[in-house]
Structures are given as C-alpha cells and as structure tokens.
C-alpha cells in the first residue's frame, strides 16, 4: 500500500477504535448509573420502582425528624404538601439539613415503602432550592390548587 494511505489508514483505525471504546464504555456506564428523580406524590402512588437506586426530593416535613440517640440513624418524612414519604438514613446529615427545608436524597425504596437513603443533599445556602424540589412543589400545588399559604411557602423558597 502507498505509505501515505497506509498512514492515513492507521490514523483512521486508531480513531475508530478509540471512538468504539468510548461509546462502549459510555453506554455500559450510563446504563448502570442513571438515577431518575421521583417526587413524593409519585412515590406514594407506587409509581417509583422498588430496590432501584433513584433520587427523591421535597421538603423535610416539620416535626418529622426522629433521631436515634444510640446510633447515627435518622428518620424523617419528605413531602411535597400533597403526599409524604418516610426516609431512613444512617450517617451524618449536611449542615443545612433542617425541618421545612428542601432536600434531595439518593437511595432505594424498600418493600415497606420506606426510602432508604445512602446520601442526603441539602441546599448550599439559604437562597438555594434544589430545582427538582421546586418543580415538585409547584406541580403538587398546581394539581391541588391548594390554600394560599402552601403556594406562599413554595414561592418564598423557590429562587
């Protein structure tokens, strides 16, 4: 083969091989690591898959945080003001975790309908609200045409 063509062929082969590896790795890794987001209404209605790693978010229901004094276990409820989901977590919660604040949790739903979280994220500062949570709140308040105070709560906490 002509040396220039041969060289071009090698380059093209390298590129194709690199691309193939990249595409293969990406699809493989993507399939395993996509975490879908569900809001409390969807979870309560049974629309979320059981024992699959998902994200869930909403506001921490006031008065729902129960802390075990002997271990690092914490239980709380996450709500979008139309439904709430019990969450269980073992570990240290973020600084800004508090009742009445927006959170996003990663974890799996068990057969009893409890969301077992392995990671809990809270907002970064007092003005921030996870966008999923803001959306979920907006959706539920629209659906129910709830009393003004809920709307107001959603408004003041969304950006």
């Amino acid at each position: 083969m002509h040396p220039i063509r041969k060289k071009r062929l090698t380059i093209v082969l390298f590129l194709v091989a690199g691309l193939a590896i990249a595409v293969g790795l990406t699809t493989y890794a993507l399939r395993q690591n996509i975490n879908l987001f569900y809001d409390p209404t969807e979870i309560a209605a049974g629309n979320a898959p059981v024992d699959v790693r998902i994200r869930a978010g909403g506001m921490v229901e006031a008065g729902s945080v129960v802390r075990d004094t002997e271990t690092l276990k914490v239980e709380f409820k996450v709500t979008d003001f139309s439904a709430s989901v019990p969450v269980e977590y073992v570990g240290i919660l973020p600084d800004l975790f508090a009742e009445g604040q927006g959170v996003v949790a990663m974890g799996r739903l068990n057969n009893e309908g409890v969301f077992v979280a392995d990671q809990v994220l809270a907002k970064h500062d007092e003005n921030y609200m996870p966008p999923e949570v803001a959306d979920a709140l907006e959706k539920s308040s629209k659906a129910q045409n709830k009393a003004a105070d809920v709307d107001k709560a959603a408004e003041t906490t969304a950006y």
Partner: peptide, 28 residues
C-alpha cells in the same frame, strides 16, 4: 461532556429528570 450535559439536555427537552453519578465518571 456527555456525563455533564446529558441530564441538562434531557431536562431541557422535558424528557425527565435524572442525574449521572460518580460511578459513571469513575468507570469511564
């Protein structure tokens, strides 16, 4: 770029909210 932009594009197209976790980046 794919791992970073994919969730944003899906969200923008209103095709659902998802996140791509650390394991994706670590394995690739």
């Amino acid at each position: 770029a794919i791992g970073t932009l994919y969730p944003l594009v899906l969200d923008y197209l209103d095709m659902g909210k998802l996140s791509i976790g650390e394991p994706f980046f670590n394995t690739t």
